[in-house]
């Protein structure tokens, strides 16, 4: 087991950031940690790396108890921070070499490895440029590259695609998939469901500091297999109608986004007349049913739409 987390509790004042949180990550696994902002993802990551102490429970990484002081653990982890943590006045090469040097790499190793990493992140032609001139996507790639310099066994990526263009996002997702094929263990957090769907072999959905559900994507979808999902577009939706729909006992969950009600009804759509009657005065534009995906799993299990929370 690469990461073993058992019943971890972490409080910040009155806020319970991790609440009996447990997680196991096996070697070579790409685990997607999914949850809205404030779910506890970053706290979980910081606890795994040893940046914050936990109040209760147990964390071991590479089979070693994580007490925050163990350099052996740190040496084997690559951490991609959510915010850009590169030096903008320095060149890409200088950034890569500096972060590599923090892991005790020699001058020769730094020179060789920085070239390798530059190729991996697609910046081989821009190595001598100051990073302040880079686009957002290039900075993100360099941010990842800096954590790859010491060739870590475990890479922890905390929302690595925040604020970048689709092209760079795809590049990063492809790159994560490539890393996974080489057997690198990856912990990938995001509030973009499609990213987690694309890269993760296992998914852990967390909310309010604890695990809501975990498993492979098919396993998670199977949990809500019997539910019917309806998407009803209206001209002008309202919170009042949302409450009214939630009050219908046969409805399991309702979410509202951009004048579209997403309604989950267990066991198939048998109460469509009731639903239509409730919202008919809002002028229904379109009605659709859909196959459940990870977003629906999240909605069903948490009662929230992930993107709204982000």
């Amino acid at each position: 087991m690469i990461i073993h987390i058992e019943n971890v509790m972490k409080r910040f004042g009155n806020n319970l950031a991790l609440d009996t949180f447990s997680l196991d990550v096996k070697k070579g696994e790409v685990i997607g940690l999914l949850g809205p902002n404030g779910a506890g993802k970053t706290t979980c990551i910081r606890a795994i790396i040893g940046l914050i102490p936990i109040d209760d429970g147990e964390i071991s990484v590479f089979g070693i108890h994580q007490d925050g002081k163990n350099k052996e653990i740190k040496r084997r982890i690559g951490y991609v921070t959510q915010e850009l943590t590169i030096y903008e006045e320095m060149t890409a090469k200088e950034n890569l070499e500096f972060f590599g040097s923090l892991y005790g790499m020699t001058k020769e190793q730094l020179a060789t490895r920085s070239l390798e990493v530059a190729k991996i992140i697609g910046l081989e032609g821009r190595m001598r440029e100051k990073t302040k001139h880079f686009s957002g996507g290039m900075k993100r790639r360099l941010n990842i590259g800096c954590s790859l310099m010491h060739d870590p066994e475990l890479i922890i990526m905390d929302e690595p695609t925040v604020g970048i263009d689709p092209q760079s996002r795809n590049f990063i997702l492809e790159f994560v998939k490539q890393l996974a094929t080489k057997g690198t263990t990856i912990l990938y957090t995001s509030h973009y469901i499609e990213e987690v769907e694309a890269v993760a072999s296992n998914i852990c959905i967390m909310d309010q500091g604890h695990t809501i559900a975990s498993g492979t994507l098919p396993e998670l979808i199977a949990r809500i297999k019997g539910d019917a999902h309806m998407l009803i577009d209206v001209r002008i939706a309202s919170e009042e109608k949302l409450k009214a729909l939630r009050a219908i006992p046969e409805i399991k969950e309702v979410a509202l986004e951009n004048n579209q009600y997403h309604i989950i009804v267990p066991g198939g759509i048998t109460i469509i007349d009731k639903i239509i009657a409730e919202i008919a005065d809002q002028t229904i534009v379109n009605i659709n049913s859909k196959q459940p995906n990870l977003e629906d799993v999240f909605l069903t299990l948490t009662g929230k739409q992930l993107r709204d929370e982000a």
């Binding site: 910081r46 790396i49 940046l51 350099k71 052996e72 740190k74 040496r75 982890i77 951490y79 921070t81 959510q82 915010e83 850009l84 943590t85 972060f99 040097s101 923090l102 892991y103 005790g104 800096c146 954590s147």
Partner: peptide, 12 residues
Amino acid sequence: SPMRDRLLASPC
């Protein structure tokens, strides 16, 4: 700044 986490995550 957020750089702190990256630096402290290293064994340095």
